[in-house]
């Protein structure tokens, strides 16, 4: 059988009477109610206690939010993607398929690189919006934009092709929601030493094969 420690219920008078605490709780909810009513009359930007009236009043989205993808163009209007397929390789969900192609005769100035992507498909239903493709892209061609209204009746419509990804970019550009270029992460060269090393990295043995002693 299970052993259980014996717990004595010791209540103070206020707790025993129990209406006191209930009254306190009710007072608190009323305070919230009054505060919310007041806040709803307040002008200016949205304040927290009222809810976001979604279709009309949209919440401010972080510029780095990972939403629907887009294929970027550079300032000259040239496609940045060269079809290298790094994003497809980095994707954990394997939802990107890229085909590399050469631009047709006379269309070379439409593309920034010497090659281009002949087709670019993202299965949005598979995508988990982790941003690995964005990190892997050497040309900063594919980025995750701010669009989050992605629901569709038909699952086939959720497979975004190149046209749609470029359209995403044009729409974002028109609305001024382009993703800011990522800041370079300061990488340390000689490590500034921590005063007290954590236990996790106490012993540093490099290049030691793990199973050497077992054999």
């Amino acid at each position: 059988m299970v052993r259980r420690p014996v717990v004595k219920k010791e209540y103070t008078l206020g707790e025993r009477v129990y209406l006191v605490e209930i009254g306190k709780g009710l007072g608190l909810t009323w305070k919230h109610f009054v505060y919310n009513v007041k806040a709803s009359f307040r002008k200016g930007p949205h304040t927290v206690p009222t809810c976001w009236q979604y279709p009309e009043d949209r919440r401010e989205i972080a510029p780095i939010f990972r939403g629907a993808h887009m294929l970027q163009l550079n300032e000259k209007g040239q496609e940045l993607c060269v079809g290298c397929g790094m994003c497809a390789r980095a994707c954990p969900a394997k939802c990107i398929t890229v085909k590399r192609g050469k631009p047709a005769e006379g269309e070379e100035d439409k593309y920034a690189g010497k090659t281009m992507c002949a087709s670019f498909e993202i299965d949005m239903l598979r995508c988990i919006f982790c941003g690995n493709c964005e990190k892997a892209c050497p040309k900063n061609a594919i980025v995750l934009g701010q669009d989050y209204e992605l629901a569709e009746y038909d699952p086939n419509l959720c497979i975004y092709d190149k046209k749609r990804l470029l359209a995403n970019f044009h729409r974002a550009k028109a609305e001024g929601r382009l993703k800011p270029p990522r800041k370079p992460v300061p990488v340390d060269a000689p490590a500034p030493k921590k005063k007290t090393p954590s236990k996790a990295t106490m012993t540093k043995k490099k290049g030691e094969s793990g199973d050497s002693e077992k054999a």
Partner: peptide
């Protein structure tokens, strides 16, 4: 299924949008 919402997970707005749809 009537409506598919991509996202992992979608924002609450995305769910509301699907409900409106």
């Amino acid at each position: 299924v009537d409506i598919y919402i991509p996202g992992c997970p979608p924002r609450p707005e995305g769910i509301l949008y699907a409900l409106l749809k």
